[in-house]
């Protein structure tokens, strides 16, 4: 893809092995600024490892992984500091003088202003995950990494979170890399879906459907993506 804009993420020939086990086996990837990319694959396919490398948490790798701008991340577990109030969790590490005001604004975006002075352990799973999103976005990242952030939520909360993430993405326009094993989630949210298997990108799907997408509109493409994951849904139908 020839683009005049510098990519938000560029990865070339990325290798990673834990001992004898190769986890990433030559990944090439470019993400445009503002693009929403989903990394789809089974557990153990290397998708989370790729995200950790992009977050700078793992530097012992072969090949190149470049993220020139600021990076922020939300994990499957919210990973909030239980001994700091909600607003402090958002403002800590920002190094800005008006931390509380910034945190309150971010909480407004995830509709949790009332919980600014709550202890994180008093929040529900969905609320904690929304705080974690607010904390990630308040850094105004060029690249937002989402490591299965909806994986631990119940189905209803997950639906609400999909809308919230799409909404926040549309407003802030970071490049997003979403790691997931949920095909519907990927189809609902992403511009591009990369299917990972055994440390390689085995398929790429561009999702050109208009937003906001509904479940029914993605059904056709769903079958093709599932086929790349080795799941035959025709048989089940």
């Amino acid at each position: 893809m020839a683009s005049p804009v510098k990519p938000a993420v560029s990865v070339r020939g990325l290798h990673k092995a834990f001992g004898a086990r190769t986890v990433l086996d030559g990944i090439d990837l470019e993400v445009e600024p503002g693009e929403f990319v989903a990394l789809l694959g089974r557990s153990g396919c290397g998708k989370s490892t790729l995200l950790r490398i992009l977050a700078g948490l793992d530097r012992e790798v072969g090949g190149e992984a470049e993220v020139p701008g600021t990076v922020s991340i939300a994990f499957q577990q919210p990973r909030l500091l239980p001994w700091r109030k909600v607003w402090r969790n958002i403002s800590l590490g920002l190094h800005k003088p008006n931390g509380r005001a910034i945190a309150l604004k971010a909480l407004e975006e995830v509709r949790l202003t009332d919980h600014a002075d709550a202890w994180p352990l008093t929040l529900s799973g969905g609320e904690a995950q929304r705080v974690s999103l607010a904390r990630a976005l308040v850094r105004e990242p060029d690249v937002l990494l989402l490591d299965e952030p909806f994986g631990a939520l119940d189905a209803l909360t997950r639906l609400a979170m999909h809308h919230l993430v799409e909404d926040l993405w549309a407003r802030h326009k970071p490049a997003v890399l979403l790691v997931t094993h949920d095909v519907d989630e990927a189809l609902l949210l992403a511009d591009r879906i990369l299917v990972l298997d055994e440390g390689r990108i085995v398929a790429t799907h561009h999702v050109a459907l208009p937003r906001p997408r509904r479940r029914a509109s993605v059904v056709e493409q769903r079958t093709r993506v599932l086929a790349d994951l080795g799941v035959d849904v025709e048989e089940a139908a």
Binding site: A55, G56, L57, V71, S72, I73, F75, Q77, R79, L81, W83, R84, L92, G93, L94, H95, R135, A136, R139
Partner: peptide, 24 residues
């Protein structure tokens, strides 16, 4: 996991100790 999150979110080493390690 908390230390990792703090690292990505831009905490300095001192902040990681004061806000993550010592409170835990």
């Amino acid at each position: 996991g908390l230390v990792e999150a703090a690292r990505v979110l831009g905490y300095s080493r001192f902040e990681r100790i004061v806000h993550v390690v010592l409170p835990s």
